[in-house]
Simulated assay, not measured.
Amino acid sequence: MTVYQNILTQSGFMDNTQLTYPFEERGLQFGDGIYEVIRIYKGSYYLLTEHVNRLFRSADALKITLPFTKEELYINLEQLIKQNNITKDAKVYLQVTRGSAARDHVFPDVEANFYAYAQDLPRPTENLRHGVAAITIPDIRWQNCYIKSLNLLPNVLAKQEAKEQGCFEAILHREETVTECSSSNVYLVKGDTIYTHPETNTILHGCVRSRIKTLLDNHSIAFRETAFNLEQLADADEVFLSSSTAEVMPIIMINNNSVKDGKPGKITQLLQKMYEQDSKIHDSIFS
């Protein structure tokens, strides 16, 4: 995937090969930072407000002073698109760390480090149409998963385990209660009801997850923020995941067992159509 040349930093825009930080950088040494991944469709941000609000919530939780206001960030992110002449599907990766200082567990009195860059990201159309496979794996992460922090090693290990087993994603569970996936939220459908883990500290409060809830307000499909376990997951009529990069993705196989008939279900497909309409996607996977 192409990385666009102009990168946004706390010092303004620069070429992406010019950004450097000292080796004593707290994101590098402590994972002391936060991030967001924001979707772009045909040159326009999707759920930008939700991502910016979550960034500020994460910063507040970690006591990181952001080097910009929300209004300044909105202006700079729009400028990032213009600087790079982005007109197609892409994503922006945005990262803030506590800053650069001599290594010490105690917070230093320094300015935060910040950068954001854009990268092409085509829609995963084949997976969206046909569905993906997943595995289940114990959730060994810390207790503050609602913070979108840089501490992602357990997520990385889970995702790698899924890849090594030929799967797209790993579904995490704590003592058999399903929480979320390594890089997405997860849902099951039983009858005409969607179930997903409530917004506690043990899951990331996904921006697409929140939008799904809103989109369902005017439909006859119930949305229950109620935890479910591995046994209920195995008995589901449909299973799907959501994230900014994966959108609304059907899961058709878990641990080598098919979910029902092994095809994307009708409620998942309805949500996919609602997502496309909401994000103003013109090239539908159903075309």
Rank of each mutant, 00 (worst) to 15 (best):
K82I: 12
D217I: 11
N201E: 15
D278T: 01
Q143C: 08
V156K: 11
K88T: 13
E276P: 03
E164P: 00
V156T: 13
K213I: 10
I267N: 09
L152I: 10
T202A: 09
D235E: 15
V248P: 08
Y35I: 05
A116W: 12
N53K: 14
V208E: 03
R224H: 11
C167V: 00
A118G: 10
S149P: 02
T65R: 11
E231I: 14
F23Y: 12
V106N: 11
I267P: 07
S287F: 06
K263W: 00
H282P: 00
I75T: 15
F240R: 08
F107M: 12
Q269G: 00
D235I: 03
I86S: 07
I75L: 13
F68W: 07
E24M: 12
Q165H: 11
R224A: 14
V248D: 07
E161K: 12
P108R: 07
N229I: 06
I194T: 09
K70F: 02
I135G: 01
F168N: 09
V189Y: 09
A133T: 10
K148L: 06
Y117E: 06
I251A: 07
D283G: 01
S244Y: 05
T200R: 11
L128E: 03
Q232T: 14
L233W: 10
V96P: 09
D192H: 15
L270V: 04
A158M: 05
L19C: 04
T226N: 04
I75R: 12
F30Y: 15
L216F: 11
L77Q: 09
K42Q: 13
N218S: 15
P264H: 00
F30Q: 01
I7G: 07
K263Y: 03
